[in-house]
Design a protein around this nucleic acid. Structure first.
Ligand SMILES: [Mn+2]
Ligand SMILES: [Mn+2]
Ligand SMILES: [Mn+2]
Ligand SMILES: [Mn+2]
Lengths: 218, 218
DNA sequence: CTCATGTATTAGGTTAGACTAATTTTGTAT
DNA sequence: ATACAAAATTAGTCTAACCTAATACATGAG
Protein backbone atom coordinates (compact mmCIF):
# COMPACT_ATOMS: atom_id res chain seq x y z
CA UNK A 1 0.00 0.00 0.00
CA UNK A 2 1.45 3.33 -1.07
CA UNK A 3 2.09 5.91 1.66
CA UNK A 4 1.66 9.63 1.31
CA UNK A 5 4.44 12.11 1.83
CA UNK A 6 2.78 13.17 5.05
CA UNK A 7 2.26 9.68 6.44
CA UNK A 8 5.91 8.94 5.80
CA UNK A 9 6.98 12.06 7.68
CA UNK A 10 4.86 11.13 10.67
CA UNK A 11 6.26 7.60 10.81
CA UNK A 12 9.79 8.94 10.57
CA UNK A 13 9.14 11.48 13.34
CA UNK A 14 7.69 8.81 15.59
CA UNK A 15 10.71 6.61 14.98
CA UNK A 16 13.17 9.36 15.86
CA UNK A 17 11.29 10.49 18.96
CA UNK A 18 11.07 6.92 20.23
CA UNK A 19 14.87 6.74 20.21
CA UNK A 20 15.15 9.74 22.54
CA UNK A 21 12.10 9.54 24.78
CA UNK A 22 10.47 6.61 26.48
CA UNK A 23 7.04 7.76 25.34
CA UNK A 24 6.10 9.26 22.00
CA UNK A 25 3.51 11.80 23.10
CA UNK A 26 1.12 13.68 20.87
CA UNK A 27 2.82 16.89 21.88
CA UNK A 28 6.30 15.60 21.01
CA UNK A 29 5.11 14.70 17.51
CA UNK A 30 3.39 18.05 17.12
CA UNK A 31 6.57 19.86 18.19
CA UNK A 32 8.79 17.77 15.96
CA UNK A 33 6.70 18.32 12.83
CA UNK A 34 5.69 21.83 13.80
CA UNK A 35 2.07 20.84 13.34
CA UNK A 36 -0.90 21.57 15.53
CA UNK A 37 -1.84 18.83 18.05
CA UNK A 38 -5.30 18.73 16.49
CA UNK A 39 -3.77 17.85 13.12
CA UNK A 40 -1.54 15.26 14.73
CA UNK A 41 -4.32 13.37 16.44
CA UNK A 42 -6.18 13.07 13.13
CA UNK A 43 -3.13 11.57 11.49
CA UNK A 44 -2.44 9.24 14.41
CA UNK A 45 -5.93 7.84 14.04
CA UNK A 46 -5.34 7.32 10.34
CA UNK A 47 -2.02 5.55 10.94
CA UNK A 48 -3.64 3.41 13.62
CA UNK A 49 -6.42 2.53 11.20
CA UNK A 50 -3.78 1.40 8.70
CA UNK A 51 -2.04 -0.65 11.41
CA UNK A 52 1.17 1.30 11.09
CA UNK A 53 1.12 2.37 14.74
CA UNK A 54 -0.70 1.77 17.98
CA UNK A 55 -1.77 4.82 19.95
CA UNK A 56 -3.44 5.75 23.18
CA UNK A 57 -2.78 8.72 25.35
CA UNK A 58 -1.01 6.85 28.13
CA UNK A 59 1.24 4.68 25.94
CA UNK A 60 1.74 7.30 23.26
CA UNK A 61 2.43 6.28 19.66
CA UNK A 62 4.29 3.05 18.99
CA UNK A 63 5.29 1.84 15.55
CA UNK A 64 4.07 -1.60 14.55
CA UNK A 65 6.47 -3.88 12.69
CA UNK A 66 5.19 -2.62 9.34
CA UNK A 67 5.27 0.99 10.54
CA UNK A 68 8.88 0.60 11.53
CA UNK A 69 9.69 -0.94 8.18
CA UNK A 70 8.32 2.11 6.44
CA UNK A 71 10.14 4.50 8.80
CA UNK A 72 13.48 2.76 8.30
CA UNK A 73 13.01 2.73 4.56
CA UNK A 74 12.46 6.48 4.52
CA UNK A 75 15.42 7.11 6.82
CA UNK A 76 17.55 4.87 4.62
CA UNK A 77 16.64 6.86 1.54
CA UNK A 78 17.15 10.15 3.35
CA UNK A 79 20.64 9.22 4.41
CA UNK A 80 21.64 7.69 1.08
CA UNK A 81 20.56 10.84 -0.71
CA UNK A 82 22.55 12.92 1.77
CA UNK A 83 25.63 10.90 0.91
CA UNK A 84 24.94 11.45 -2.78
CA UNK A 85 24.54 15.20 -2.34
CA UNK A 86 27.75 15.56 -0.36
CA UNK A 87 29.97 13.00 -2.10
CA UNK A 88 28.85 13.44 -5.68
CA UNK A 89 27.37 16.91 -5.91
CA UNK A 90 29.79 18.43 -3.39
CA UNK A 91 27.23 20.10 -1.20
CA UNK A 92 28.33 21.08 2.28
CA UNK A 93 26.96 18.71 4.92
CA UNK A 94 25.04 21.58 6.48
CA UNK A 95 23.01 22.15 3.30
CA UNK A 96 21.75 18.71 2.43
CA UNK A 97 19.06 18.00 4.98
CA UNK A 98 16.22 20.01 3.41
CA UNK A 99 16.91 18.48 0.00
CA UNK A 100 17.01 14.97 1.44
CA UNK A 101 13.67 15.71 3.12
CA UNK A 102 12.23 15.92 -0.38
CA UNK A 103 14.24 13.15 -2.01
CA UNK A 104 13.40 10.60 0.69
CA UNK A 105 9.85 10.47 -0.66
CA UNK A 106 10.75 9.47 -4.20
CA UNK A 107 9.19 6.11 -4.75
CA UNK A 108 10.66 3.37 -6.89
CA UNK A 109 11.32 -0.29 -6.12
CA UNK A 110 14.89 -0.34 -7.32
CA UNK A 111 16.05 3.17 -6.51
CA UNK A 112 17.47 2.76 -2.99
CA UNK A 113 19.40 -0.35 -3.95
CA UNK A 114 20.83 1.17 -7.10
CA UNK A 115 21.74 4.37 -5.32
CA UNK A 116 23.34 2.40 -2.49
CA UNK A 117 25.48 0.43 -4.96
CA UNK A 118 26.41 3.55 -6.87
CA UNK A 119 27.59 5.18 -3.65
CA UNK A 120 29.64 2.13 -2.68
CA UNK A 121 27.27 0.91 0.06
CA UNK A 122 28.13 3.57 2.62
CA UNK A 123 27.57 2.75 6.29
CA UNK A 124 27.11 6.32 7.47
CA UNK A 125 25.57 9.50 6.20
CA UNK A 126 27.52 12.79 6.10
CA UNK A 127 26.42 13.58 9.67
CA UNK A 128 27.78 10.27 10.92
CA UNK A 129 24.38 8.65 11.29
CA UNK A 130 24.19 4.98 10.35
CA UNK A 131 22.30 4.03 7.19
CA UNK A 132 19.62 1.40 7.79
CA UNK A 133 19.91 -1.75 5.68
CA UNK A 134 17.87 -4.94 5.46
CA UNK A 135 15.11 -3.30 7.44
CA UNK A 136 17.28 -2.69 10.49
CA UNK A 137 19.13 0.24 11.99
CA UNK A 138 22.78 -0.65 12.59
CA UNK A 139 23.79 0.14 16.14
CA UNK A 140 27.17 1.18 17.34
CA UNK A 141 28.53 2.44 20.65
CA UNK A 142 28.02 6.14 21.15
CA UNK A 143 27.80 8.50 24.04
CA UNK A 144 26.80 12.10 24.42
CA UNK A 145 29.64 14.45 25.15
CA UNK A 146 27.58 15.66 28.12
CA UNK A 147 27.86 12.21 29.69
CA UNK A 148 31.67 12.24 29.84
CA UNK A 149 33.55 12.91 33.06
CA UNK A 150 36.55 15.17 33.48
CA UNK A 151 39.64 13.86 31.67
CA UNK A 152 37.69 11.40 29.56
CA UNK A 153 37.83 11.72 25.78
CA UNK A 154 36.30 10.41 22.58
CA UNK A 155 35.95 10.93 18.86
CA UNK A 156 33.01 12.74 17.33
CA UNK A 157 30.85 10.05 15.74
CA UNK A 158 27.73 12.03 14.89
CA UNK A 159 25.67 15.06 15.77
CA UNK A 160 22.08 14.90 16.99
CA UNK A 161 21.12 18.40 15.90
CA UNK A 162 21.61 18.85 12.18
CA UNK A 163 20.30 22.41 11.99
CA UNK A 164 22.32 24.87 9.96
CA UNK A 165 23.09 27.17 12.93
CA UNK A 166 24.45 24.28 14.96
CA UNK A 167 26.59 22.94 12.15
CA UNK A 168 27.92 26.41 11.43
CA UNK A 169 28.83 26.73 15.09
CA UNK A 170 30.73 23.45 14.92
CA UNK A 171 32.57 24.59 11.83
CA UNK A 172 33.59 27.71 13.68
CA UNK A 173 34.89 25.56 16.52
CA UNK A 174 36.87 23.55 13.98
CA UNK A 175 34.97 20.50 15.05
CA UNK A 176 33.92 17.80 12.59
CA UNK A 177 33.37 14.07 12.40
CA UNK A 178 36.39 12.31 13.80
CA UNK A 179 37.60 15.25 15.87
CA UNK A 180 39.04 14.17 19.21
CA UNK A 181 37.49 15.81 22.23
CA UNK A 182 38.88 15.77 25.73
CA UNK A 183 36.95 17.03 28.74
CA UNK A 184 39.16 19.39 30.76
CA UNK A 185 36.58 20.63 33.22
CA UNK A 186 32.86 20.58 33.97
CA UNK A 187 31.03 23.46 35.66
CA UNK A 188 28.50 22.22 38.16
CA UNK A 189 26.13 25.14 38.09
CA UNK A 190 25.12 24.98 34.42
CA UNK A 191 26.79 21.80 33.19
CA UNK A 192 28.87 23.67 30.66
CA UNK A 193 32.21 22.08 29.79
CA UNK A 194 35.71 23.17 29.01
CA UNK A 195 37.05 20.96 26.26
CA UNK A 196 40.03 20.57 23.98
CA UNK A 197 39.26 19.84 20.32
CA UNK A 198 42.05 17.88 18.64
CA UNK A 199 44.37 19.09 21.38
CA UNK A 200 43.84 22.77 20.66
CA UNK A 201 43.09 25.72 22.98
CA UNK A 202 40.47 25.04 25.67
CA UNK A 203 36.96 26.12 24.69
CA UNK A 204 33.91 26.51 26.85
CA UNK A 205 30.75 24.95 25.48
CA UNK A 206 27.18 24.87 26.81
CA UNK A 207 25.22 21.80 27.89
CA UNK A 208 22.98 22.37 24.89
CA UNK A 209 26.04 21.85 22.72
CA UNK A 210 27.41 18.84 24.62
CA UNK A 211 24.02 17.16 24.56
CA UNK A 212 24.09 17.18 20.78
CA UNK A 213 27.51 15.71 20.16
CA UNK A 214 27.70 11.91 20.04
CA UNK A 215 31.08 10.32 20.67
CA UNK A 216 32.69 7.02 19.89
CA UNK A 217 34.48 6.28 23.15
CA UNK A 218 35.25 2.56 23.48
CA UNK B 1 6.92 32.25 -5.67
CA UNK B 2 6.96 28.51 -5.06
CA UNK B 3 4.94 26.33 -7.41
CA UNK B 4 3.07 23.23 -6.43
CA UNK B 5 3.73 19.81 -7.91
CA UNK B 6 0.45 20.07 -9.76
CA UNK B 7 1.00 23.56 -11.14
CA UNK B 8 4.37 22.44 -12.47
CA UNK B 9 2.80 19.47 -14.21
CA UNK B 10 0.20 21.65 -15.89
CA UNK B 11 2.80 24.12 -17.14
CA UNK B 12 4.89 21.28 -18.50
CA UNK B 13 1.90 19.72 -20.24
CA UNK B 14 0.95 23.04 -21.82
CA UNK B 15 4.50 23.50 -23.04
CA UNK B 16 4.63 20.08 -24.67
CA UNK B 17 1.19 20.35 -26.27
CA UNK B 18 2.04 23.77 -27.70
CA UNK B 19 4.94 22.19 -29.60
CA UNK B 20 2.63 19.75 -31.35
CA UNK B 21 -0.62 21.62 -31.81
CA UNK B 22 -1.29 25.17 -32.86
CA UNK B 23 -3.81 25.58 -30.05
CA UNK B 24 -3.57 24.22 -26.50
CA UNK B 25 -7.20 23.35 -25.85
CA UNK B 26 -8.73 22.48 -22.53
CA UNK B 27 -9.47 19.02 -23.81
CA UNK B 28 -5.89 18.45 -24.95
CA UNK B 29 -4.63 19.29 -21.47
CA UNK B 30 -7.26 17.11 -19.83
CA UNK B 31 -6.28 14.19 -22.08
CA UNK B 32 -2.59 14.69 -21.53
CA UNK B 33 -2.83 14.76 -17.73
CA UNK B 34 -5.70 12.28 -17.60
CA UNK B 35 -7.68 14.77 -15.57
CA UNK B 36 -11.30 15.81 -15.87
CA UNK B 37 -11.95 18.97 -17.96
CA UNK B 38 -13.70 20.49 -14.93
CA UNK B 39 -10.50 20.09 -12.90
CA UNK B 40 -8.45 21.51 -15.72
CA UNK B 41 -10.44 24.69 -16.07
CA UNK B 42 -10.05 25.36 -12.34
CA UNK B 43 -6.30 25.05 -12.61
CA UNK B 44 -6.15 27.16 -15.78
CA UNK B 45 -7.89 29.97 -13.93
CA UNK B 46 -5.41 29.63 -11.09
CA UNK B 47 -2.44 29.75 -13.45
CA UNK B 48 -3.96 32.72 -15.25
CA UNK B 49 -4.43 34.45 -11.89
CA UNK B 50 -0.73 33.88 -11.18
CA UNK B 51 0.17 35.25 -14.63
CA UNK B 52 1.81 32.02 -15.70
CA UNK B 53 -0.50 31.59 -18.68
CA UNK B 54 -3.16 33.38 -20.65
CA UNK B 55 -6.32 31.47 -21.43
CA UNK B 56 -9.56 31.85 -23.27
CA UNK B 57 -11.50 29.24 -25.11
CA UNK B 58 -10.69 30.44 -28.61
CA UNK B 59 -6.95 31.00 -28.11
CA UNK B 60 -6.50 28.12 -25.71
CA UNK B 61 -3.76 28.22 -23.07
CA UNK B 62 -0.56 30.12 -23.81
CA UNK B 63 2.43 30.25 -21.48
CA UNK B 64 3.60 33.70 -20.46
CA UNK B 65 7.33 34.34 -20.31
CA UNK B 66 7.43 33.39 -16.64
CA UNK B 67 5.23 30.34 -17.25
CA UNK B 68 7.61 29.16 -19.94
CA UNK B 69 10.56 29.69 -17.63
CA UNK B 70 8.97 27.40 -15.07
CA UNK B 71 8.08 24.79 -17.69
CA UNK B 72 11.59 24.73 -19.12
CA UNK B 73 13.09 24.48 -15.66
CA UNK B 74 10.98 21.42 -14.89
CA UNK B 75 11.77 19.83 -18.24
CA UNK B 76 15.45 20.53 -17.65
CA UNK B 77 15.37 18.79 -14.31
CA UNK B 78 13.34 15.91 -15.71
CA UNK B 79 15.86 15.26 -18.45
CA UNK B 80 18.92 15.71 -16.25
CA UNK B 81 17.55 13.19 -13.76
CA UNK B 82 16.87 10.78 -16.62
CA UNK B 83 20.51 11.04 -17.63
CA UNK B 84 21.53 10.38 -14.03
CA UNK B 85 19.31 7.34 -13.72
CA UNK B 86 20.57 5.80 -16.95
CA UNK B 87 24.23 6.80 -16.86
CA UNK B 88 24.93 6.47 -13.16
CA UNK B 89 22.34 4.07 -11.79
CA UNK B 90 22.23 1.93 -14.94
CA UNK B 91 18.50 1.92 -15.36
CA UNK B 92 17.16 0.99 -18.75
CA UNK B 93 16.01 4.05 -20.68
CA UNK B 94 12.49 2.65 -20.76
CA UNK B 95 12.23 2.64 -16.95
CA UNK B 96 13.30 6.14 -16.04
CA UNK B 97 10.38 8.31 -17.03
CA UNK B 98 8.10 7.67 -14.02
CA UNK B 99 10.96 8.26 -11.61
CA UNK B 100 11.96 11.49 -13.35
CA UNK B 101 8.33 12.57 -13.09
CA UNK B 102 8.86 12.62 -9.33
CA UNK B 103 12.43 13.92 -9.26
CA UNK B 104 11.65 16.89 -11.51
CA UNK B 105 9.72 18.45 -8.62
CA UNK B 106 12.58 18.46 -6.13
CA UNK B 107 13.21 22.05 -5.32
CA UNK B 108 16.63 23.52 -4.54
CA UNK B 109 18.43 26.52 -5.97
CA UNK B 110 21.67 24.78 -6.71
CA UNK B 111 20.56 21.26 -7.52
CA UNK B 112 20.07 21.44 -11.30
CA UNK B 113 23.40 23.15 -11.81
CA UNK B 114 25.30 20.74 -9.59
CA UNK B 115 23.63 17.75 -11.18
CA UNK B 116 24.35 19.12 -14.64
CA UNK B 117 28.04 19.56 -13.81
CA UNK B 118 28.23 16.13 -12.20
CA UNK B 119 26.80 14.58 -15.36
CA UNK B 120 29.24 16.46 -17.59
CA UNK B 121 26.72 18.97 -18.96
CA UNK B 122 24.89 16.58 -21.26
CA UNK B 123 23.08 18.05 -24.27
CA UNK B 124 20.53 15.24 -24.62
CA UNK B 125 18.54 12.97 -22.35
CA UNK B 126 18.54 9.19 -22.81
CA UNK B 127 15.67 9.45 -25.27
CA UNK B 128 17.57 11.91 -27.44
CA UNK B 129 15.57 14.93 -26.30
CA UNK B 130 17.54 18.13 -25.85
CA UNK B 131 18.10 19.43 -22.32
CA UNK B 132 17.03 23.06 -21.84
CA UNK B 133 19.71 25.42 -20.55
CA UNK B 134 19.77 29.13 -19.73
CA UNK B 135 16.00 29.22 -19.86
CA UNK B 136 15.84 28.11 -23.49
CA UNK B 137 15.16 24.90 -25.33
CA UNK B 138 18.06 24.19 -27.72
CA UNK B 139 16.86 23.55 -31.23
CA UNK B 140 18.59 21.32 -33.71
CA UNK B 141 18.06 20.72 -37.37
CA UNK B 142 16.67 17.27 -36.97
CA UNK B 143 14.60 16.34 -39.98
CA UNK B 144 15.15 16.14 -43.70
CA UNK B 145 12.64 18.03 -45.77
CA UNK B 146 12.01 14.74 -47.57
CA UNK B 147 10.66 13.26 -44.33
CA UNK B 148 7.87 15.80 -43.94
CA UNK B 149 4.27 14.96 -44.75
CA UNK B 150 1.88 17.18 -46.65
CA UNK B 151 0.92 20.33 -44.67
CA UNK B 152 3.82 19.98 -42.24
CA UNK B 153 6.39 22.73 -42.04
CA UNK B 154 9.75 23.65 -40.55
CA UNK B 155 12.60 26.12 -40.63
CA UNK B 156 15.79 25.49 -42.54
CA UNK B 157 18.52 24.68 -40.01
CA UNK B 158 21.30 23.42 -42.22
CA UNK B 159 22.11 21.90 -45.62
CA UNK B 160 23.85 18.59 -46.19
CA UNK B 161 25.20 19.37 -49.64
CA UNK B 162 27.40 22.45 -49.68
CA UNK B 163 28.41 22.36 -53.34
CA UNK B 164 28.31 25.62 -55.27
CA UNK B 165 25.65 24.46 -57.74
CA UNK B 166 23.35 23.43 -54.91
CA UNK B 167 23.83 26.67 -52.96
CA UNK B 168 23.28 28.70 -56.14
CA UNK B 169 20.10 26.80 -56.74
CA UNK B 170 18.94 27.60 -53.19
CA UNK B 171 19.73 31.26 -53.68
CA UNK B 172 17.69 31.28 -56.82
CA UNK B 173 14.80 29.75 -54.85
CA UNK B 174 15.24 32.53 -52.28
CA UNK B 175 15.90 29.87 -49.67
CA UNK B 176 18.40 30.33 -46.85
CA UNK B 177 18.98 29.35 -43.21
CA UNK B 178 15.85 30.22 -41.27
CA UNK B 179 13.52 30.14 -44.26
CA UNK B 180 10.15 28.62 -43.47
CA UNK B 181 9.11 25.74 -45.69
CA UNK B 182 5.65 24.27 -45.91
CA UNK B 183 4.90 21.09 -47.82
CA UNK B 184 1.91 21.65 -50.09
CA UNK B 185 2.00 18.38 -51.97
CA UNK B 186 4.09 15.28 -52.54
CA UNK B 187 4.20 13.40 -55.81
CA UNK B 188 4.19 9.68 -55.31
CA UNK B 189 5.93 8.62 -58.48
CA UNK B 190 9.24 10.40 -57.97
CA UNK B 191 8.93 11.82 -54.43
CA UNK B 192 9.23 15.37 -55.67
CA UNK B 193 7.50 18.00 -53.54
CA UNK B 194 5.55 21.17 -54.04
CA UNK B 195 6.55 23.59 -51.33
CA UNK B 196 6.00 27.17 -50.24
CA UNK B 197 9.11 29.06 -49.15
CA UNK B 198 8.32 31.79 -46.64
CA UNK B 199 4.76 31.72 -47.85
CA UNK B 200 5.62 32.54 -51.45
CA UNK B 201 4.57 30.95 -54.76
CA UNK B 202 4.50 27.15 -54.80
CA UNK B 203 7.68 25.59 -56.23
CA UNK B 204 8.31 22.04 -57.27
CA UNK B 205 11.54 20.51 -55.99
CA UNK B 206 13.14 17.10 -56.56
CA UNK B 207 13.83 14.41 -53.96
CA UNK B 208 17.54 15.07 -54.45
CA UNK B 209 16.91 18.60 -53.23
CA UNK B 210 14.60 17.64 -50.32
CA UNK B 211 17.08 15.04 -49.09
CA UNK B 212 19.70 17.70 -48.58
CA UNK B 213 17.71 20.23 -46.57
CA UNK B 214 17.68 19.78 -42.76
CA UNK B 215 14.82 21.37 -40.89
CA UNK B 216 14.13 22.49 -37.36
CA UNK B 217 10.62 21.27 -36.79
CA UNK B 218 9.09 21.14 -33.27
C1' DC C 1 -30.74 26.65 -41.11
C1' DT C 2 -30.89 23.27 -37.78
C1' DC C 3 -29.60 19.84 -35.00
C1' DA C 4 -26.22 16.46 -33.37
C1' DT C 5 -21.95 16.19 -31.42
C1' DG C 6 -17.94 17.63 -29.24
C1' DT C 7 -15.94 21.17 -26.21
C1' DA C 8 -16.20 24.37 -22.45
C1' DT C 9 -18.22 25.79 -18.27
C1' DT C 10 -20.81 25.80 -13.99
C1' DA C 11 -22.50 23.89 -9.69
C1' DG C 12 -21.86 21.13 -6.13
C1' DG C 13 -19.25 17.38 -3.72
C1' DT C 14 -15.09 14.61 -1.80
C1' DT C 15 -10.64 13.76 0.41
C1' DA C 16 -6.23 14.82 2.57
C1' DG C 17 -4.14 17.53 5.53
C1' DA C 18 -3.77 21.36 7.70
C1' DC C 19 -5.84 25.14 10.98
C1' DT C 20 -8.36 27.77 15.36
C1' DA C 21 -10.97 27.77 19.29
C1' DA C 22 -13.22 25.45 22.72
C1' DT C 23 -13.42 21.59 26.11
C1' DT C 24 -11.96 17.58 28.67
C1' DT C 25 -8.56 14.96 30.95
C1' DT C 26 -4.42 14.40 33.54
C1' DG C 27 -0.67 15.44 36.42
C1' DT C 28 1.50 18.31 39.91
C1' DA C 29 2.24 21.69 43.50
C1' DT C 30 0.50 23.43 47.39
C1' DA D 1 -7.95 17.61 48.34
C1' DT D 2 -7.82 21.50 45.43
C1' DA D 3 -6.67 24.01 41.85
C1' DC D 4 -4.02 25.20 38.18
C1' DA D 5 -1.43 24.20 33.99
C1' DA D 6 -0.21 21.16 30.48
C1' DA D 7 -1.74 17.66 27.30
C1' DA D 8 -5.27 15.52 24.74
C1' DT D 9 -9.40 15.77 22.37
C1' DT D 10 -13.47 17.58 19.90
C1' DA D 11 -15.90 20.53 16.71
C1' DG D 12 -15.88 23.22 13.06
C1' DT D 13 -13.32 25.61 9.10
C1' DC D 14 -10.12 26.09 5.21
C1' DT D 15 -7.47 25.17 0.86
C1' DA D 16 -5.69 22.39 -2.97
C1' DA D 17 -6.84 19.35 -6.15
C1' DC D 18 -9.48 16.36 -7.74
C1' DC D 19 -14.46 14.38 -9.08
C1' DT D 20 -19.64 13.83 -11.37
C1' DA D 21 -23.55 15.62 -13.49
C1' DA D 22 -25.86 19.19 -15.70
C1' DT D 23 -25.75 22.95 -18.83
C1' DA D 24 -24.03 26.21 -22.38
C1' DC D 25 -21.58 27.07 -26.50
C1' DA D 26 -19.55 26.16 -31.15
C1' DT D 27 -19.33 23.85 -35.31
C1' DG D 28 -20.00 21.18 -39.21
C1' DA D 29 -23.08 17.83 -41.95
C1' DG D 30 -27.18 17.47 -44.06
MN1 LIG E 1 19.07 14.88 7.36
MN1 LIG F 1 21.85 13.10 8.10
MN1 LIG G 1 10.65 11.37 -19.53
MN1 LIG H 1 13.18 11.74 -21.74
Amino acid sequence: MKKTYSEENYLKAIYHISKNENKVSLKAIADSLENNPASVIDMLRKLKEKQLITYDKTQGAILTASGETVALDIIRKHRLWEVFLVEKLHYDWAEVHPIAEQLEHIHDDQLAKRLDDFLGNPAFDPHGDPIPANGKMPVYANKRLSELEISQSGKVGSVRDTSTPFLKYLKQLNLGLGSKIEVLDKLDFDQSMIIAIDGSEPRTVSSKMTDNILLITE
